[in-house]
Nucleic acid binder design. Structure first.
Lengths: 345, 345
DNA sequence: TTGAAAGCGTTACCAC
DNA sequence: GTGGTAACGCTTTCAA
């Protein structure tokens, strides 16, 4: 493997000149720049990442912290990861995977070893054990998800309150006067993931405003529990039932569960919900679906992280950004997308 | 951040002793070892990854190369990634994500910059453009998927031929005398992913052996195309139809498509197939499903890579390993798992 | 506009 | 058993 020394020799310049040609951190005469670039090309030189990190104290790597919990919707996770990786590359950074297999020790490790310059944490919970760790580490970090105590942290997420509202609005627009919100998983009920609460809040407010009645029926992620919840709803409702869910897993199962009970979704019952995986939308044609815009959320997460990393400011105040969902697919109609991000605080 | 120099000072030893205590590469007296370990603990010392990589010429990182093609089943991909990351950590290595956004240039980059010591490539195609690149780079690499020309490469995959056989055997056991294999996507038809061909080969052989008739109907990943294929099958078949597919996307859609046509899967029609995402199995209760054992495949991939990296042998012959699938879920019965990996060549 | 040289924090060889 | 020290390949200050 050629080194910058080799390049310097080949171009007849000093090693520092090679470095400056690559970084552009100081003016170089056209003439020598061309010579150096030619040598680089010729030798197919690539700087050694370790040496560069050592000297510059920057690894050009960002750590992506994933919770591999059984209740995660893997397809959605992957969606985020892909966008994050692509965006990072566009900023000339790479992604190091940090699974929470090692728990928050993994965080201390990757930061302690200076393997990465910043962190993105996914699926952040209401009271996330990773939060005190990150606070202590004083490393640039962005949280995807809104913890209960987000003071001083940089958080971004889909706006679930707005999503709840939108779902109920869709419900009302489809002439339902009552509906049921169904489905989140057992470990989430204890407000572990507070997006559920945010969703309910928005939905309830809209229900009150629009004069529709709304009930909540919890379910776990296994099929039996969802079936039981559906049966309870059907029994207790009058008219065409409407099912609303903020949970991708529930949404994926709902249509077939309804069909098994002789209800044709979209005709005998409405299914309204939202999920972060656009790919899954093709499977939910009978439903009205909001796009949680995972691409936007993850892209912004990366961009916020970069602004933090550049500022190099130890404590930049904290930021809370909510991305409004989009009605992407409305059962039985052509879909009119209406983008517009927004941020607060 | 404390350095090994600080540790040395605190423990009253030389820096090299600290290094040797950490690596265990030379005998250290009990006494000094304890002192050094105490100092490490005390200062919460962690070695700097960049410096370590520079000096040892090993980054302790493995590059995971993902194809983010639209036709990938993201949930399955994620499944693999999680296992690979966990296994790598168990060997004291980290995972760097290499999306093929940059194409095979990304490979040249991560290897050239010496960001990683080895590569795992996922979703390897029959004629994969990454193969000549990896060959040239002469870096330890494991392919998940079997390319047409696998000579000298280290490949591992699920045994799709066996899977095809098993599916047909399941079909015959359910008293079908004819069935149809349905669904792979347009870009895959051109033998891009040859697992389809392997699956068909196995299925055909079994069909011949068991005296059942079998036809192939291609479909794309969009719902309309699968529906058309199903309709064609229903029209042309006599008796209870059996649908077999090696494609997770198709399997997920099949049950509801059948129901829309008044066929209750498992009763009026059989759905038999296999997919790499165990999570999805809960959604496929009406089907007979083989587990492609993504956990086993990815675990072995990592282990093979480590043996290559240790050998440090530039050209270790090549290896082809096929993991037999497992009948995990048989419609309407309790499932008797029958494990046993195997390898060839 | 360019070069020389001092680090950056490890590892590993050579002495003792 | 242990310590000194020369790499490792880059960045960046200081001089010119």
């Amino acid at each position: 493997m050629p080194t910058s020394k080799d390049v310097a020799a080949a171009a007849g310049v000093s090693q520092s000149t090679v470095s400056y040609v690559m970084s552009g951190k100081r003016p170089i005469s056209e003439k020598t720049r061309l010579r150096v670039e030619a040598a680089i090309e010729q030798l197919t030189y690539q700087p050694n990442a370790g040496a560069r990190a050592l000297a510059s104290r920057k690894s050009q790597v960002i750590g992506l912290v994933l919770p591999i919990t059984p209740e995660a919707h893997l397809g959605s996770l992957m969606e985020f990861i892909a966008v994050i990786a692509a965006t990072a590359r566009r900023h000339d950074h790479d992604i190091l995977l940090v699974t929470d297999e090692e728990g928050s020790q993994g965080l201390e490790r990757v930061v302690g070893q200076q393997l990465c310059d910043g962190l993105i944490l996914m699926q952040v919970e209401a009271e996330d054990e990773r939060i005190p760790v990150v606070r202590k580490l004083r490393v640039p970090a962005v949280f995807i998800g809104i913890p209960d105590d987000s003071a001083g942290l940089n958080c971004i997420d889909a706006d679930f309150a707005r999503a709840g509202e939108l779902c109920v609005e869709e419900m009302a627009a489809a002439a339902h006067t009552s509906g049921v919100i169904i489905g989140w998983r057992p470990r989430l009920v204890g407000s572990r993931l507070n997006y559920v609460g945010r969703f309910l809040g928005g939905a309830d407010a809209a229900a009150q405003r629009l004069g529709v009645s709304l009930s909540h029926v919890p379910a776990t992620s296994d099929r039996g529990s969802i079936e039981a919840a559906v049966d309870a709803c059907i029994a207790g409702m009058e008219g065409k039932p409407a099912f609303v869910s903020p949970d991708m897993t529930v949404l994926e199962l709902l249509p077939r569960i309804l069909r098994e009970r002789g209800l044709e979704p979209g005709k005998d019952a409405s299914v309204i919900g939202m999920g972060p995986a656009p790919q899954a939308l093709i499977e939910l044609q009978e439903s009205t679906v909001l796009d949680l815009q995972p691409r936007l959320v993850s892209q912004r997460a990366v961009e916020i992280l970069f602004s933090l990393m550049q500022a190099d400011n130890p404590d930049p105040g904290g930021l809370l950004e909510l991305i409004p969902p989009l009605v992407t697919h409305r059962h039985g109609t052509a879909e009119p997308p209406v983008p517009v991000p927004q941020s607060t605080r």
